[in-house]
Design a protein around this nucleic acid. Sequence first.
DNA 1: GTGTTTGTTATCAA
DNA 2: CTTGATAACAAACA
Length: 280
Amino acid sequence: MPELPEVETLKRELSRVLVGKKIKNFSAEKFALDLVGKKIESVERRAKILILELSTSQKLEAKSYLLVHLKMTGQLIYLPASGTKAKPVMGGHPEDPTKYTRAVFQFTDTSQLLFNDLRKFGWLKLVSSSEAATILDRHGVEPLSRAFTLDKFKEILARYPKRKIKQLLLDQTLIAGLGNIYVDEACFGAYILPTRLVGSLNEQEVADLHQAIIAVLKLSISKKGTSARNYRRSTGEKGGMVALLNVYGRAKLPCKRCAGTIAKIKLNGRGTHFCNSCQK
DNA sequence: GTGTTTGTTATCAA
DNA sequence: CTTGATAACAAACA
């Protein structure tokens, strides 16, 4: 479940190794993309989408953008040029495309990038600058940007007083990048039940939730993300955040900060985790 | 065979 | 416009 911290980790790692590389060959069963000869100018992230900015050798030709969404089980694994040691990925080895490899980028220096995706929900789109803007602009404020002030958060909440807070936080058109894991963790951090109606939150709770969202995202990025299931770093390694999760994946286990127990329910079709004692 | 896992979009309903 | 519910996509796992 790659969410903001996982995609941000990939952005940082891939930015270091891919910028300046030229695509020599591209193969995929389902994505017919004209990528050969293009050079990677930059690697960026918006919401849960990774953005590769591409140029051609034709100086006057417009830049194009490869957008990547990993959805639930996507991976981007980077294989350096020649003679590298492998770490296991999805039961195989990263240097051997697994049966879940959906696309392979080969660069002129013989390094490669694999797009793996067990459930095939992820996608690659090659688009123009304006098409990229259309897709990216559908998303709300970046929670780690300066634009995500407490006032901005209050303004968003004020528009939807009757929604449950978890459902609002999952809405990508309002705040970009939170998914099932970090929404549950942020609610825990603010001592708020994910089932609460937005309009029932008092000033202090809103401020606490604002801070909890920022804190959990930053902490996870510092740990290179959460490998609850399929997510891997670009190196094939797992992220280190799982051990620091307080509620996600901890149903029936003791709460880490009180005598309570972590409960799990279904909320709007999502597995939802919270402490039955210290979250109110 | 059943339920569970979840990001996103579409569609229908009140 | 808000909100809620459901299906669809797809594959593995218990």
